[in-house]
Structures are given as C-alpha cells and as structure tokens.
C-alpha cells in the first residue's frame, strides 16, 4: 500500500507545473487554466490528508474549494471577455494600464 507521501508529492509537482504555466503563459485564459490546475493540486492534498488522517473536514474543504474555483472561473472569464471587448487585448502583457 502506498502511503500519504506519493499523493503529497504528486500534489506538489502538479502545483509546480501550474505555477510555471501561470507565470509564463501569454494568453489570459491559459493563465486561468493554470490557476485552476494549482487549485486542483491543493484538492489532491486535502483529500489525501483527509483519507489518511481520519478526519472528514478535508473533504468538506474540497467542496468549498470547488465553489471558489467556480467563482474564480466565472469572474475571471467575465473580466477577460470585458478587457478583450473594450480594449482588444489578447496578450496578458498588454494589460499594463495600472502598471507603475
């Protein structure tokens, strides 16, 4: 039986892949996708700790995390669509109106 370790390690690797993508992608929607992947990595850890640690609270937290991910996708896509429609920006580097 594999223990808790491999699940946590997989969560770390998945989070790292998502973080790399979120920092290097150019399309705003691709950045959103990578952020969703990082949330997924956290969910793996929640469920693994809940399953091996014997408390159901981790599973409840995954449900809340799903809610927050849905909120994030809805508002994020609305913002991207708004920026695209009003300013015709497709690269995330072009959104620098508030940049110092």
């Amino acid at each position: 039986m594999i223990g808790l370790g491999p699940y946590v390690a997989l969560g770390a690797v998945l989070f790292a892949i998502g973080a790399y993508g979120a920092l290097t992608r150019h399309n705003p929607i691709a950045v959103l996708m990578c952020i969703e992947m990082m949330l997924n990595a956290a969910n793996i850890n929640f469920v693994a700790f809940s399953s091996f640690g014997g408390s159901i609270d981790g599973q409840i937290f995954v449900i809340f995390s799903l809610v927050v991910a849905a909120c994030e996708a809805a508002t994020g896509l609305a913002l991207v669509l708004g920026v695209y429609r009003n300013r015709d920006i497709q690269e995330i580097g072009d959104m620098h109106l508030l940049k110092w």
């Binding site: 039986m1 594999i2 223990g3 808790l4 370790g5 946590v8 390690a9 770390a12 690797v13 989070f15 790292a16 809940s50 399953s51 091996f52 640690g53 014997g54 408390s55 159901i56 599973q59």
Partner: peptide, 25 residues
Amino acid sequence: LTALTIWGVYGSAGRWPVVPSGLDT
C-alpha cells in the same frame, strides 16, 4: 521549491500514516 517540498515530505515519511484510516466517506 518542488524539490524542497518533496524532500520535506520524504524526510519525515516515517512519521506519516501509511495505511488509509478507513474513514467513513
């Protein structure tokens, strides 16, 4: 950062549970 995390996970692996707790899910 990932290597540090995995090193931390496996450095303390002996103290972590190996068998699922049989939680009622």
